Computed example of a mutant assay.
Amino acid sequence: MRKLSSIFLVGLCLGAIGAVVVTASHGRAATPEPIAVAEEMPSMSDSPPTAASASATPTPTPPPASAPAKADPGSGVDAAELDRLVPGGNVSAVVFDRQRGAATVSAHADRGYTSASLVKLLIALSVLDGGGPTTQVQRMLSRSDDDLASQFWTTYGGPSIVTRWAKKMGLTGTRPPADAGRWGDTRITAKDVVRIYQYVLGHAPGAILAALRGATERGSDGFRQYFGIPDAAGGRPWAVKQGWSCCMPTRMLHTSGVVGEDDRYIVVVLSEHPSSVDYATGSRRVTAVVKALLG
């Protein structure tokens, strides 16, 4: 019995020692061997993959919606809307798209007005056609110089300037003034002024357009001539000839010229106001009309 007990005790001791050895080996951290891993960095917008998404077919991203087409200047504007912007007066407007070869708006285009300084376009054509001084013609246009206009009017034919160019361009509503000495009383229509610009753009010396691009903010008489197209153009390039006259019995305020890249649009707004409407108010009304046209 004692011998058996000794052997049993020895076995227990050896078992305990083995258990300690096994436990110690599990407590030590094994040094890992390096493993080569090809890792793809996700973008900031990637979501962690899931079992469902890993096997699903990716949904294509729809293309961005294209920007809506820009409306043509004047589209959707009617004569009644423009009339409301000139209470108690008259207004005519034409916007002609040279790229399309058509008007995008035409309101009261055949209504007649006295031209004020717009007739200077015809005077300039006559002077340059006759070999006159280019620099002075440009000053007459860019600063709307009345003294130069009067000199040229007398020298280059007076009323015959109007009749000659009206015939050449096919102007149906343009007439010389009843008083031969009053060039500003020449009769015009918005439709005819568009035709004058078509001729200037296609056939006239570049000196005329250069002068219209360089129109000064103040005319030679001190009048602020940036009403209408210049004030409403909104950063678009422009070239203008303006007109104003007063006051028996009404006040005229006209803005005309080309607007946009490559002189795409010919814009003409002719307006007549009661003499009780001052120039500042009339100018703001004309500018509002052009803003309605250009958008």
Rank of each mutant, 00 (worst) to 15 (best):
R2H: 10
I7W: 04
I7C: 01
F8I: 04
V10E: 04
L12T: 03
C13I: 15
L14I: 08
G15C: 10
G18Q: 14
V22C: 00
T23V: 05
T23Y: 05
A29Q: 09
A30C: 03
P32D: 13
I35L: 04
V37G: 00
S43L: 15
S45M: 14
S47A: 11
P49Q: 06
S53W: 00
P60G: 02
P64N: 05
P68M: 12
D72F: 00
G74I: 04
G76K: 06
R84A: 04
L85S: 12
G89A: 13
S92Q: 11
S92N: 12
A93Q: 02
V94W: 06
R100A: 10
G101P: 02
S106H: 01
L118F: 08
L125G: 01
S126P: 00
L128N: 06
G130Q: 12
G131A: 14
Q138G: 14
R139L: 07
S142C: 01
S144E: 13
D145Y: 06
F152D: 07
T154N: 09
T154G: 11
I161C: 01
I161H: 02
V162T: 09
A166R: 03
K168L: 06
M169L: 13
M169S: 04
G170F: 02
T174P: 01
W183C: 08
V193I: 07
Y197D: 02
A204V: 03
A204H: 01
P205A: 05
I208W: 11
L209C: 12
A211L: 13
R218Y: 15
G219F: 08
D221E: 12
G222H: 11
F223P: 03
Q225K: 05
F227W: 15
I229D: 08
R236S: 14
P237M: 11
G243F: 07
M252R: 06
H254Y: 13
V258G: 10
V259M: 08
E261V: 15
D262C: 00
V267T: 14
H273N: 11
D278V: 10
Y279G: 14
Y279I: 14
A280Y: 08
R284N: 10
T287G: 05
V289P: 02
V290A: 05
A292W: 01
